[in-house]
Write a protein that binds this DNA or RNA. Structure first.
Lengths: 215, 215
DNA sequence: GTCTATATAGGGATAGAC
DNA sequence: GTCTATCCCTATATAGAC
């Protein structure tokens, strides 16, 4: 059983570590700086985490867990496929927007920015598969237009991640001030619109279909 | 004037450095390893590049230059907006596919993985602006459907980068073997299709338009 | 232009007092 | 649970012979 003081310090370390790992990457992160920002000595960190690797994994696991939870929660809920995919995208964008540091770390991790000893868990595969299965089912019952579901899902993940990590550097004017709620809504609307157009949701049927109907 | 031997070594260093920077990032890259793989002593590196920073910038500049060239070449060419955007996407995807290491480095760079002394040049802004201006013009003359051109461009960049950097880790089965030409064609087709649907290219007019036409 | 040897600094991690 | 002091290693970078 941990004391309340210990739990508080541990959380502050995780907070600061998340910030540093996002900004500087694993190899660029200095334990010395983390301790400094937390307000403790470097050696004290090793009381909470036996090594830099362990601290990294603790931060990473938080992010993976929340991603899976967010996706599962929507997929397991009710509603038509079209409604659910909108909910899914909005929940995902909001989650990413609320934790940009976490997203940066996950993106870095997928680029290979991790301790050499770290072998990533196949958790990401499961979440991805769940989303792909959902899209495929929607296509099978003709509610979604045909398009490669894996490519669509991967593309959306890359797109959203990019908006909240790299885009602020490339297009600061468009992104606005960091933490500005405007950009979140803008990205949300855009991503929903892109996916809707790709899956043929919310659009009038095509002329071909109209001709058949008229005939 | 450099000797041919010197030029050869310099190029080999740049090659190996690009590979290492992509795999390990700036802070994770060890000059010792680069020298080892090139087959020279670590100290010899400093004959070609005065510091690790300079080596990094040399690699990075190569990537930025080629990106700008690729984009400009298509934009300055002839053809209708719809044809040009397809050419642009295909050229871009091919460039990224041919230089995945370079793409990883650029993506890392936009995440802030660079020496503290490095202040990125605003070059990326110019290329982005050129593409956005092109899309906007296509929308003005009604050849493209309305959608936020900045968001579309940023999203495509993120999407494509993700396909060739992170996706192989997340969905190895879908991506196939590295260097497999299949994935390049698949990504190319997908990205062209997504953008086409977003910009309303190559699709029948909607029912609303058809009704007006029939009336 | 390449080498050996070394300077200098900073990193992660440990020992042990309090 | 936090500290001071320190170990040990590796990193970039330099000096100078060949």
């Amino acid at each position: 059983m941990r004391t309340s003081a210990e739990r508080g310090t541990r959380e502050r370390i995780l907070e600061v570590a998340e910030s540093s790992l996002a900004e500087c990457g694993y190899h660029g992160t200095r334990l010395h700086r983390i301790a400094e920002r937390v307000g403790i000595q470097k050696a004290s960190l090793f009381h909470y985490f036996p090594s830099k690797d362990d601290l990294y994994r603790a931060v990473l696991d938080e992010g993976l867990d929340e991603t899976e939870q967010t996706v599962r929660q929507v997929l397991d809920g009710g509603g038509s496929p079209s409604e659910k995919i909108r909910q899914l995208l909005e929940a995902y964008v909001e989650m990413v927007a609320q934790h940009p540091d976490r997203t940066k770390i996950l993106l870095r991790q997928s680029l290979g920015d991790a301790p050499a000893s770290y072998h990533q868990p196949p958790d990401a595969h499961r979440v991805l598969s769940a989303v792909v299965a959902f899209v495929s089912e929607g296509q099978r019952i003709k509610e979604f237009a045909p398009i490669d579901p894996v490519a669509l899902t991967l593309g959306v993940v890359g797109m959203v991640a990019f908006f909240f990590t790299s885009a602020p550097v490339l297009a600061p004017a468009w992104c606005g001030d960091p933490g500005n709620p405007t950009i979140v809504e803008r990205v949300k609307e855009h991503v929903v619109e892109v996916v809707a157009r790709c899956l043929g949701i919310g659009h009038e049927p095509t002329v071909a279909a109209a001709k058949v109907a008229i005939a």
